[in-house]
Design a protein around this nucleic acid. Structure first.
Length: 444
RNA sequence: GCAGCUGUAGCUCAGCUGGUUAGAGCACUAGUUUGUGGAACUAGGGGUCGGUGGUUCGAACCCACCCAGCUGUACCA
């Protein structure tokens, strides 16, 4: 008996995992339906790959790091390691390599799927979340990169954002390559420290980033981060270059030219866009929201980007001798949902059921007659599914936000006229069964 | 990983310098109203005060260690 307490299962969720409720899910559905519409219009194929992949298929070959089990949820099955996918790009690369001969080239596909990351969650960042990816495989044509920016912008506007609400930032890996050449930085370690520092300009501001470029920085909590050890002259040169507003690399210039043909203007050249991924080889882009986002305590939070992407011409080559250039974009759908829910009230019809109250179990047949009439008309409805007196049933209807209840007790059954109570106004009327549907539709 | 902060009811939190049976609001259950919700009133259920060890006549409160969460920072294929 004593041990019972210890056996009680925990009702806590694993760190970084969340329950998602209807309002959020409906907003998400709305976004997804917009995505699908746009993607069909732009001529992309719909693809789904499994949640699990062999770890080696989505991890080891990636040039970035050689830590197969860090940041990823993995387990060993027989002899092989399996991992939950951490993005949709790696599985795509695997898919393309596997089906290389069959797929059209170029291959355009889009995918919506849950991804998992075994890392520390932050505000608005979870360990399980939904991603949307669109990619062009097998083309070096920069029209593809341009079109990704155009397409994401169309999706966002379809979701109700105005041009001023978001910006597509664009830069290129070539910019940083040129930069490192000019600064005479050849050490890979130093280069990546510089990149990581530059990536933080948005969040920390230039003066803090400058410390990271020099000897190091102490953050608010007192923690210390080592710097990239650039000298003053290097930092000065870098500052000048990073604050340039005119693109200097050919790829970006060409993309901007293509934007003009599309009449797409909502972009911004920003050389401080770095993106973490080391597999990018050319143009890179990032989508930022320009309005404030608050957390559940009402504090404004640093929201960062909702998505981004770029060109990765060498990634697929890792699977073998496949010279297969590619470019793609990813969007964190849940983050977009979170932001959109604050941006404007979506009038998403949630259509809660009309509740038919139960007075007497023996009359269930009568209740169901009415129920069938309503459902025939696609009116969300139910016979009270629990047990209890009328008061309890009213409380239930109120709690689920039901628009109306139908009272069909002895008196009503005898007269053949159910009572319809509008739960918003509290008004009741006694009406013929045949006009019930029309009256309810007025309330809805 | 590092640093700071925080762990008391389902939720949000109070609990003064250690002192009888640990509190509030919300939520929940029942009743006032045995055929009427959202309001009010009344009553009620629900806590090894994160865990372990220590100090003390006595610990939610002090000390040590551990665990968990939050925030920042690092890493992030």
């Amino acid at each position: 008996m004593e041990k019972d307490k210890k056996l009680k299962p925990s009702k806590e969720l694993p760190l970084g995992f969340v329950d998602r409720q209807e309002k959020e899910l409906l907003t998400r559905d709305f976004i997804i339906s917009n995505i699908k519409e746009v993607m069909i219009k732009y001529g992309f194929q719909y693809l789904e790959t499994p949640s699990f992949e062999y770890s080696e298929s989505i991890g080891k070959y990636l040039p970035d790091k050689e830590r197969p089990d860090q940041g990823v949820f993995s387990f060993q099955d027989e002899k092989k390691w399996l991992s939950l996918r951490y993005d949709l790009t790696a599985p795509l690369a695997r898919y393309v390599a596997k089906n290389y001969l069959e797929i059209p080239k170029p291959f355009k596909r889009y995918q919506l799927g849950t991804v998992w990351r075994n890392e520390k969650p932050g505000p608005g960042r979870f360990r399980e979340f939904l991603q949307f990816d669109a990619d062009f495989i097998g083309t070096k044509n920069l029209q593809a990169d341009a079109e990704l920016c155009v397409l994401i912008s169309e999706i966002l506007e379809k979701c109700g954002l105005a041009k001023k609400d978001y910006t597509v930032k664009i830069s290129s890996r070539k910019f940083t390559e040129d930069l490192f050449a000019e600064l005479k930085i050849s050490s890979k370690g130093q280069a990546s420290t510089v990149l990581r520092a530059l990536d933080k300009i948005d969040r920390l501001g230039w003066s803090e980033v400058k410390k990271l470029l020099a000897t190091g920085r102490k953050d608010d909590s007192g923690d210390y981060t080592d710097g990239a050890n650039l000298n003053d002259e290097q930092i000065l040169t870098l500052e000048k270059k990073i604050k340039e507003t005119k693109p200097s690399t050919e790829d970006v210039l060409e993309i901007i030219k293509i934007f003009e043909s599309y009449n797409f203007t909502n972009y911004q050249y920003d050389p401080s866009v770095i993106r973490g991924l080391e597999y990018y080889t050319g143009p890179i882009f990032e989508v930022n929201l320009n309005f404030e986002v608050k957390n559940n305590k009402g504090q404004t939070i640093q929201f960062g980007s909702i998505g981004g992407g770029g060109r990765y011409d060498n990634l697929i080559n890792n699977f073998g001798n496949l010279d297969c250039p590619a470019t793609g974009i990813s969007v964190g759908i849940d983050r977009l949902v979170y932001a959109l829910m604050q941006k404007k009230e979506f009038n998403l019809k949630t259509s809660k059921p009309v509740v038919i109250c139960v007075f007497n179990k023996a009359d269930l047949g009568e209740y169901i007659k009415i129920l069938k009439i309503l459902r025939e008309e696609n009116i969300s409805s139910e016979v009270y599914p629990g047990e209890g007196n009328l008061k309890k049933q009213m409380q239930y209807a109120n709690k689920i936000n039901s628009p109306a209840v139908i009272l069909y007790g002895e008196n009503e059954i005898n007269s053949g006229k159910p009572t319809l109570r509008d739960l918003k106004s509290g008004k009741e009327q006694s009406i013929e069964i045949k006009s019930l549907v029309n009256e309810i539709k007025k309330i809805l």
